[in-house]
C-alpha cells in the first residue's frame, strides 16, 4: 500500500488501529476519526485518560470496549488531573525500577466542554505543573453528547438547544473562547491546532507533541455532522472550509513562537463555510458579515503574533 509507505514518515505502523471498529460514533463522525489518526502517530506505548463525552460513551458499553490502548475514564472535569496522576505514577515507578524505563505517552482527551468549561481549572493546573503529557481537546463546538447544548467553544451565531435563535436571540451570543491561546499563555513547550481534514498536518503536530519535554496541547476541530446539521459525508469538507476561511486557522506555538502551518493563498469567504450548515441557517447576511469582520481581525492578529514571536 503506497499510502502506508507515505505514512511511515510519521508513524511506525500505519496499518495499526488502536480504536476497534464497532464503536458507536454517529455516521461521519470526524471526532473519532481525529483520534484514530492521532493514535496512529502515538503508537502502542500510550495511556489514555478520557473525559466524559461522546468519545467515552461511544466506546465502552460494558462489557465491550473499542480501545486497544490502556484507557481510563473517571469523570467530566478532571481529565487533566487524572492524566497528571498517571504521569506522576509512571515517573516515580520507573524511577524506583518498578517499571521498565521507556517512554510512554500520557494523553488526556476531552471535548470542548470538558476543556474550555468544566475541565478548564484542572487543565490549567496540569499545564502549569509541567507534566509530560499531551492534552487533546476534541472541539466539536458544543455539548454534543448530551444533545447539542452550547459551550464556551460554540461559535457566535450558532444554533444549539440551549442557545436557540429566536425573536430576541441570534443563537449563540458570545464569541468562541480561544482555548489554544489560553493554553499557550501557560508557556508550555507546544500548542497546536489541527483538523483531521488535514491529516498530514495533524500527524506532524501529534509527532511534535509526542517529542516535546513537557505539556503539549492539541486543539482539534472535530466536525460533528449531527450537531452542525450537515450531511454525514461532508464532515471532512467542512473541516477544510473552516480552515480555508480562516474560521479555524491551523497553527502551532512552539516554545512561544507562533507559526501558521497551513496558509491559504487567500481566505475564502466565511459565508462559504457557514452556508449549508443547519446550525447557522438562520443567520442574515448582515450577521454573517459581522462574523467575517471578526474572522478577519483574528486572522490579522494571528499573523502579527507569528511575526512578532519569530526568532
Amino acid at each position: 500500500m503506497k499510502i502506508f509507505k507515505t505514512l511511515e514518515r510519521y508513524m511506525e505502523k500505519p496499518d495499526a488501529e488502536y480504536i476497534a471498529s464497532g464503536h458507536r460514533a454517529c455516521q461521519g463522525c470526524a471526532e473519532v476519526l481525529a483520534l484514530r489518526l492521532a493514535f496512529k502517530v502515538l503508537g502502542k506505548d500510550t495511556i489514555l485518560a478520557m473525559a466524559t463525552g461522546c468519545m467515552e460513551i461511544i466506546s465502552t458499553p460494558l462489557p465491550l470496549t473499542c480501545w486497544r490502548l490502556p484507557w481510563i475514564h473517571i469523570a467530566f472535569e478532571n481529565t487533566a488531573a487524572v492524566a497528571s496522576g498517571i504521569e506522576s505514577a509512571i515517573r516515580i515507578l520507573t524511577q524506583k525500577g518498578k517499571l521498565e524505563n521507556k517512554k510512554i505517552n500520557i494523553v488526556g482527551i476531552a471535548g470542548d466542554g470538558g476543556t474550555s468549561d468544566i475541565g478548564f481549572q484542572a487543565l490549567s493546573g496540569a499545564l502549569e505543573r509541567g507534566h509530560r503529557l499531551i492534552y487533546i481537546c476534541l472541539d466539536n463546538e458544543a455539548y454534543m453528547n448530551t444533545g447539542i447544548q452550547r459551550s464556551s467553544s460554540t461559535p457566535y451565531g450558532a444554533f444549539t438547544t440551549t442557545s436557540p435563535p429566536g425573536k430576541k436571540s441570534i443563537g449563540q451570543s458570545t464569541w468562541k473562547k480561544d482555548m489554544p491561546k489560553i493554553a499557550a499563555a501557560h508557556n508550555i513547550p507546544y500548542v497546536a491546532t489541527a483538523c483531521p481534514s488535514y491529516p498530514y498536518d495533524l500527524f506532524n503536530k501529534v509527532k511534535k507533541a509526542k517529542e516535546v519535554n513537557g505539556p503539549a496541547y492539541l486543539h482539534i476541530l472535530s466536525v460533528c455532522p449531527t450537531g452542525w446539521r450537515i450531511p454525514s459525508e461532508m464532515a471532512i469538507e467542512y473541516g477544510r472550509l473552516a480552515v480555508r476561511s480562516g474560521v479555524f486557522p491551523l497553527y502551532e506555538v512552539e516554545n512561544g513562537v507562533y507559526r501558521i502551518t497551513f496558509k491559504p493563498e487567500s481566505l475564502i469567504p466565511v459565508k462559504d463555510y457557514i452556508k449549508g450548515q443547519g446550525r447557522f441557517r438562520h443567520l442574515t447576511d448582515k450577521e454573517i458579515s459581522e462574523i467575517q469582520d471578526r474572522v478577519n481581525k483574528d486572522w490579522e492578529r494571528l499573523t502579527k503574533l507569528c511575526e512578532i514571536t519569530k526568532a
Binding site: 481510563i72 488531573a81 487524572v82 498517571i86 506522576s88 505514577a89 515507578l93 505543573r129
Partner: peptide, 28 residues
Amino acid sequence: LEAAYLNVESEHSALSACVGAAAAGART
C-alpha cells in the same frame, strides 16, 4: 521519601490525580 508530590489546584484534582496514579499502579 521517594515519592511524586503533586501540588494540584483543587481537592477535586487531588483525588482525581490519586485515582489516575493508583490506576497506574502507585501507592497513593
